[in-house]
Amino acid sequence: MKRCIVAAICMLAASQAHAEPIWVQVRQSQVRSQPKFYAQSLGPVRYGERLEKLSEDGGWVKVQLAAKQGYLPLSAVSQDQIVLSSAELLKVRADSAEVVLAGKGFSKEVEQRYRSEASGSRYDLVDYVEQSSRVSPAEVQQFMKQGGLGK
């Protein structure tokens, strides 16, 4: 019996050592075929999605996405779990000390309340900037190539 318990503990420890879950902490990102910003996309990942981290190197993490392996910027993922409630009101990084602040500190709901109170703010102009400033990775890559950049 004791052996079984020891074996079970060892197996549990081994499985935990290999399993390195990470969570997407940006609204959307692309898993790339190479650790480069403009590498080919293998597929999108979204906020709160759990992935398995395989390795980390130079600002990039290698992850498992379904049957494929690819890369995400380190800044796009968190080692702290992001828990989304069904109502998406309770977004928390469960292993973080500031867990509730992550969800309830500065959130969409707080912005809506703030907008109704901050009369001098121009959120319409922020929305304009966000919508009018979008350039695709392919466009930027072409821009850099044309201008002799990124060598």
């Binding site: 902490q25 940006v26 968190s78 500190g105 500065f106 707080v110």
Partner: peptide, 10 residues
């Protein structure tokens, strides 16, 4: 410790 999402709303 602020998350990227909180930085965005700020």
């Amino acid at each position: 410790d602020l998350t990227p999402e909180q930085e965005y709303y700020l």
